[in-house]
Design a protein around this nucleic acid. Structure first.
Lengths: 209, 209
DNA sequence: CGAGCGATTGAACGCTCTCAAAGTGAGTGG
DNA sequence: CCACTCACTTTGAGAGCGTTCAATCGCTCG
């Protein structure tokens, strides 16, 4: 991206800080902004009327939220840890898009990658066993850490067992039992707030795709 | 869209015909084209090494495939019925995008809508019961038919029970049993190759979101 | 009429859930 | 420094929903 573009982006951006568990926006809110995570971990989720919840993603620094060009947000976004975000007002951003097509191409690329991830998640939710889900989850976190320029191992787990369960379509108890089993099998270790990938090969076998 | 744009689109488009069960492209193929369904029903799916399959979507006339701007297709696309498609070579299309930003905006809108649908599907796969899944599926088909300018009722079901099972994260047997139960409860009727929504209100209650 | 494929139905099993209790660690106040 | 609280996690036991395995049905086509 060129300097001129960056300057105009900087002109419209503002910064947001969130405390743990604080909501950035709710499912159904008017989608007036696009955000970029600069620090912390965010949780995206959808809720059913009776309280059942599906977590659709966890975001780490570098990830975008609200890229979808719809009138309202399709999910709730909340901070898991302390978090910082850059806010881009949609109205002003759309003005920029007309002048800098590269920006729009970039957004399409982001949406495109999210779609691929969403399809992988459908396969996980629809067809994988609890053990395969947990193994896939750990491998995915490790690969993403590498993509974001962090070490592949160990991995931070700032989210609770309930969050993981709601992401993988399981219960908290099943998540806990499966972590314990993998630990007893010597495949992972579980220092507080982290996972250590002791046997990466075996973990990828268990992820089964 | 203006006439000039349409003319240039027409210049690069070609038409493809598919027989039932014929593949348009496979997961992992180089993503050289974007398609638009003009007739028939398509099935998008991902496969695990051991043969487990997740159907990620069913497409009807008016829907696009391959919009994602990645090097390779993330899923397999096959015809369920006889199908016709318009093919847009990506290389030539990208040339057009530079001249007609509206086209790119349109693609972003399509990807955006697909993302919303994908998140709904995650909620369904991760958190809904078999009955809720089937009810949601029927309601979704009916709403989509209306959006595409067709009657809301009855709905064609060109896909097999196995296809539906692989879409909803169930087995063929559970799909069959659940359809039968809804029929016995007087909520739907099942003429050959169709569903008739006898009690739409009750169906939407069962869909539970 | 017979073959074959998809759909339905039945019976038993098992993975995950539900309900319940106990364990662990961080933070707080005496 | 220690007891207490509270939230999160782990572990156990039993139940249930959906799966698995198997048989039958029904329609289409040769």
């Amino acid at each position: 991206m060129e300097t001129a573009d960056l300057d105009r982006l900087n002109a419209i951006v503002s910064v947001t800080h969130l405390a743990p568990q604080q909501a950035l926006f709710l499912e159904g809110d008017r989608a007036d902004n696009i955000f970029n995570v600069t620090a912390g971990t965010m949780r995206l989720s959808k809720m059913m009327p009776d309280g059942r919840r599906q977590v659709t993603g966890f975001l780490i620094p570098g990830d975008f939220l609200g890229v979808a060009f719809n009138a309202i947000y399709a999910y709730t976004a909340e901070a898991i840890t302390l978090a910082n975000l850059c806010r881009f007002p949609r109205l002003k951003l759309e003005g920029l898009l007309d002048d800098f097509p590269a920006l729009e191409r970039r957004l399409l690329g982001i949406a495109s990658n999210e779609l691929v991830a969403a399809q992988d998640q459908m396969l996980l939710l629809g067809r994988k066993s609890a053990q395969e889900k947990i193994a896939s989850f750990i491998v995915m976190l490790s690969r993403r850490a590498v993509r974001h320029g962090r070490p592949a191992n160990p991995i931070d787990l700032p989210m609770t067992r309930v969050d993981i369960a709601d992401y993988l379509g399981l219960t908290m108890e099943t998540v806990s039992r499966t972590f314990t089993q993998l630990r007893k099998d010597g495949i992972i270790a579980l220092p507080r707030g982290q996972v250590e990938l002791v046997n990466m090969d075996r973990l990828e076998e268990l992820a089964a795709s």
